[in-house]
Design a protein around this nucleic acid. Structure first.
Length: 544
RNA sequence: CGCGGGGUAGAGCAGCCAGGCAGCUCGUUGGGCUCAUAACCCAAAGGUCGUAGGUUCAAAUCCUUCCCCCGCAACCA
């Protein structure tokens, strides 16, 4: 039994989850369910990232406290992940007292090392809003092309900018002119960790997705830069010790990733387990799953924090970074009205459909384009016509001709070998985050089954040779048993139903055979087909 | 010349790292079957693999040019 930690990146609690979040998250739950089926001790952990300027500003404009805003979105996240059949050991939040304590302790330990130092910097401050401004909250004119630009970069000439160099800088919140003010921050000495991180990268990169390798390699090649781990914020994890009451907070990125540890610890504490079996165990395996924008945080900064901390915690093993989801060809954007939320999708569709669609399409090479036409044809054509209909045609046949009972026969060698090799391929692909290829492996078996059903024509053999017909049926129900078992990580709802109909509730990964005569329970068509016109009507706002 | 990824049949994609008959799913057309949710099976049509050049007996694949799309650019989290 292996200790498996699966860390899904923490969604930021200032907006609803959209299809992009869902797309890059589904493979994490597939992994978690797969490893549990293998008998491993799994800790699947994520949570709501609750701190930072955007939440603080949103709270101000809505005249509520930041904790209310973040709690509201946290509740929404919990609800959506439940509807998606996600199987977290712990879905936590960074405002939890136990996370705050853990992060403070972690940084207290860090502060005793020589990877940490104080440094004075100048930062733009808005005297009207009484806060230091993140670069993206400063707007002005680009010093190079004189066109409107934000503090981090100019979208016209493409130059990277320093916020303090903008002409006519304005605070994005109140439109008054910010001033440069001296401040002191605590820095993490990433350049000093460069060699250790290169070593870490070389050792582990082969199990990472391609985009994670490429981007990390680039950061390392360019040379790492120091990064501040504190900010002057009113909304964040307070510092520890003598700095506890200062206006500084632990900067968001130096604290939210520690949620993988704090969230795991809380789960273990609540379940009589030792969290260090996950975090100080060379044989443990850690997966991190997220969208591509999270790559440097999981391949440079988080491992950097872990290396700098004297506890020698387990470093990330497999990093799975997925490309973005676009909506009918356009970038997901609230202002463009292309931010289809997970809630909207799950109000209309079975969670299995959503999980299937994204597991089938998300990848590490290029953006996945979500379109309703594609969604409907993919669900109807593949999941229902091929798979669900094979189940239904077989079970209906057995029910009508054999009263729902089939004797045990010797297993067909060729078929069993195909099933065995499918398990092997699917397992490999799931562990590499290639859910799309894994599903392809499974559906090759579905296609084999449908072909064989036609070739055998049991509706003929039932008349000419009932014994042979029953033998054929036994083979088909055996295939279904294994298909359902293999699909359990992907479409837990439907797969679970099928296993129940077949009287099998043990969810072990690997070839399954019937030991006793098969007695089918009551069953029905697994899913209802989707109606394109109906979908068009329901989601007409998303059609151009 | 900032960095990375992508451009393959009407649509969505695999193949490229390791050169060897251009493939898969959906759609279209024709046929078959009647167990099944208008589902399933067989067959056919449909592509100068973004562009231009190079290496090679052989290039979607390796090298170079240019064009187009997307992402990143460390203070979005």
């Amino acid at each position: 039994m292996k200790k498996i930690l699966i860390g899904l990146s923490w969604p930021y609690a200032n907006g609803e989850l959209h299809i992009g979040h869902v797309g890059s998250s589904v493979p994490a739950d597939v992994l978690a369910r797969f490893h549990r089926q293998c008998g491993d001790d799994v800790c699947f952990v994520s949570g709501s990232d609750c701190y930072g300027t955007p939440i603080s500003i949103q709270a101000q404009s809505m005249h509520v406290s930041p904790v209310e805003i973040s709690n509201m979105y946290h509740e929404k996240f919990v609800d959506i992940f439940k509807k998606l059949d996600f199987s977290f050991e712990n879905f936590f939040k960074t405002t939890d007292e136990r996370h705050i304590n853990f992060s403070q302790n972690f940084h207290k330990e860090l502060s005793k090392t020589n990877y940490i130092y104080n440094k004075k910097t100048m930062q733009l401050h808005c005297n009207n809003c009484h806060r230091f401004l993140p670069d993206r909250y400063v707007e002005g004119l680009c010093p190079f092309c004189k066109k409107p630009a934000k503090g981090d970069s100019c979208e016209y000439c493409g130059k990277i900018l320093e916020a303090e160099n903008l002409l006519n800088p304005k605070c994005k919140i109140c439109n008054s002119e910010p001033v440069l003010k001296a401040t002191e921050q605590i820095y993490l000495d990433l350049p000093q960790l460069q060699l250790q991180l290169e070593n870490f990268y070389d050792k582990r990169k082969d199990t990472w997705s391609q985009n994670a390798q490429g981007m990390t390699n680039r950061y390392l090649t360019e040379g790492l830069r120091e990064r501040p781990i504190t900010r002057n914020l009113d909304w964040g994890v307070p510092l520890f010790g003598e700095n506890e009451n200062s206006e500084k907070r632990i900067y968001n990125w130096a604290e939210n990733v520690l949620g993988y540890l704090s969230g795991c610890k809380v789960y273990c504490d609540n379940n009589g387990k030792n969290w260090l079996d996950f975090w100080k165990n060379k044989n443990a395996k850690h997966y991190y799953v997220h969208a591509k924008d999270n790559i440097p945080f999981h391949t440079i900064i988080f491992p950097g924090l872990l290396l700098a901390n004297p506890n020698e915690y387990h470093l990330p093993d497999t990093v799975l970074s997925y490309e973005y989801v676009t909506m009918e060809g356009e970038k997901i954007s609230k202002s463009k009205g292309t931010a289809l939320t997970a809630r909207e999708l799950l109000e209309e569709f079975n969670a299995d459909f959503v999980r299937y669609y994204f597991a089938k399409n998300i990848n590490d090479k290029k953006d996945t384009n979500f379109s309703f036409t594609d969604f409907v044809t993919s669900i109807n054509g593949e999941l229902i016509n091929n798979f669900a209909n094979f189940v239904n045609r077989t079970l209906s046949f057995v029910k009508n001709k054999f009263n729902g009972e089939v004797k045990v026969y010797e297993n067909n060698v060729e078929t069993m070998e195909l099933i065995r090799s499918a398990y092997e391929k699917v397992a490999t692909n799931i562990q590499q985050g290639k859910t799309s290829t894994a599903l392809k492996n499974i559906f090759e078996l579905v296609s084999y089954a449908n072909k064989k059903f036609d070739a055998n024509a049991p509706w003929q053999t039932i008349k000419t040779d009932p014994e042979l017909c029953e033998k054929q049926c036994f083979e088909f129900v055996t295939i279904i048993l294994n298909l359902a078992n293999m699909l359990l990580p992907f479409i837990p709802n439907g797969a679970c139903k099928i296993l129940e109909w077949m009287g099998d509730i043990k969810n072990e990964w690997g070839v399954k055979t019937f030991k006793n005569n098969v007695k089918l329970g009551d069953f029905c068509p697994l899913y209802q087909r989707l109606d394109m016109e109906n979908v068009k009507l329901k989601f007409k706002n998303y059609f151009k």
